[in-house]
Amino acid sequence: MDETRELVKQDNKNIEKTRELRSAIPAVDIYENDDEILLYADMPGVIKEDISVNIDNGTLSLSGIRKFENKGVSKWEEFWDVEYARSFSVPQTIDIEKVEADLKDGVLRLHLPKSEAAKPRMIKINAA
């Protein structure tokens, strides 16, 4: 009996915590051509002010927080407040100064232009 009580007690020792923000991985598309790399990420419900894009030492990290105003009793829920986060390795040849981002309809679109030096160049062959 004593042991049972101990087990029950241990369960009660779990401290109550506030609901932490769940993390989610946004779905992305990545495209590349000679001039730039494009990255599209689905982040529905995130507003512009709550998104951060960081490029540091060859790592691009995206993060965005989505917060809904909840009212009423929830009958069913399949999505909720989340923190989107995902990191990518990007080549050092990206021109960080010229990176552009825009957000429309819950899709974040990043343009990562390659620096001039990294663009492919046509080498002219000189006839001897």
Binding site: K71, G72, W76, E77, E78
Partner: peptide
């Protein structure tokens, strides 16, 4: 994915 909320005289679907 969808959510359904009920608030007295209306439903809200997201």
């Amino acid at each position: 994915r969808t959510n359904l909320y009920e608030d007295g005289d209306h439903f809200e679907v997201r």
